[in-house]
Design a binder for these strands. Structure first.
Lengths: 219, 219
DNA sequence: GCTTGTGAAACCGTTCACAGCG
DNA sequence: CGCTGTGAACGGTTTCACAAGC
């Protein structure tokens, strides 16, 4: 029939999507260093992957390289940003301003790529009113209003594990369609809601496995 | 008594290893709830995966289930802990006690699974001497001694990106063979050193991609 | 009966290697 | 010539489906 989608950005494999932010970061460094073009080999080195992967990944966005030369840095930044949806500002609500929530709120990672903290929420009223990274902490009950007012689509959960599922449910009910979970809990979300998780304890256990592997084979 | 390296723990696929901590957590909940046996179906539900995966994963550790019944919870906890090398206490050194380092140090995830913070280090002398989670912050120059005295094999990097590679190099030089990096930087490590990374900004960008996907296809 | 354990099939991602093009 | 873009081979992971066994 017909390709109704404008770009070739139709179906980018998940593994490629996960690497695009890496390329973006590497390209920013290259641009700052004054480079205007970059080969797949050089970009691969800067991003810590191999060049075949870079070329395959970029080919999913379309053919923006020049054979014999490489890729134009600025152009590539535009295409990747566009593919990742970073041309539009994305609002985030962060729930749970304990130690971790504090750290996340203050992390440069938010502002640096066009993410904006539309709200910091906590269920503990003694924390409400505090200002973190220029944002005043509000009570969890204000969730609906914060999501609506800020056009929030991404929620970050930094609560204790026992509260995580309820917070998740409330985020979904409020209209959030992407969730990043830092609580050590398995969360259930309905279809159509994306869920990613970051878990320190699991990462350490995976490293422990490899440590054991290494020490177990002295021969 | 000391049952050496677990019999069938020969070659566990990486994807399975990454799920074992999930099963461990689910099994702990089940044990607390009084369950003594569990089917692959029930464990799958608790861990947020499907039952075929659970059975395949567990089969890599050996055959510890009973057909028609399921798995013995306590026994399974033992086998998984053993496979992950969690029967031995693992010492960790955490470098960088800024916002994120503070949060990580205070996170329950360390102590809960047999990880022990052997040292908190920072390059900023104004932070040295502070006590976090019962551990006194020492200067980065004490790294070698901390690693030696604590028999540390795992290093956690929670520094700014610009300092990360140097900290990484120093950790490796001190004898650390597994590194968990929270800094938004691509790190190089020699063969034999395991490196994992956690990156808030990348996770948000991946969610942004899916948000864009969702809003882009109203059909 | 119910549930495990596992070959086989389907799927996805990575790597290879080279044709095609500037 | 150098480097991209890509079909094809490869290796790992997930899913299926069912025989084996309590």
């Amino acid at each position: 029939m017909s390709e109704q989608v404008d770009d070739a950005a139709r179906r980018i494999p998940e593994a490629s999507v996960a690497r695009l932010p890496l390329y973006l970061r590497a390209l920013s460094s290259l641009a700052e260093a004054g480079r205007t073009t970059v080969s797949s080999e050089a970009l691969a080195a800067a991003a810590g992957v191999n060049s075949a992967k870079v070329r395959k990944d970029l080919s999913h966005l379309g053919s923006y390289g020049t054979r014999g030369v490489g890729y134009e840095v600025d152009e590539l930044v535009q295409h990747i940003s566009s593919a990742l949806g970073l041309t539009r500002r994305r609002s985030v609500v962060l729930v749970g301003v304990g130690n971790l929530g504090h750290a996340l709120a203050g992390y440069g990672g938010f502002a640096s790529r066009g993410f904006w903290i539309a709200g910091l929420l906590d269920a503990d009223r003694s924390r409400v009113g505090e200002t973190i990274a220029g944002v005043v902490v509000r009570h969890m009950d204000d969730l609906d209003e914060v999501v609506r007012a800020g056009d929030v689509s991404i929620g970050v959960i930094a609560t204790p594990a026992r509260a995580a599922q309820e917070v998740c449910d409330r985020l979904v009910a409020a209209g959030v369609t992407s969730i990043l979970n830092f609580a050590p809990a398995v969360l259930q979300v309905p279809d159509g809601v994306d869920l990613r998780k970051v878990d320190l304890s699991i990462e350490l256990q995976i490293l422990s496995f490899h440590e054991q592997r290494k020490s177990g084979i002295p021969a």
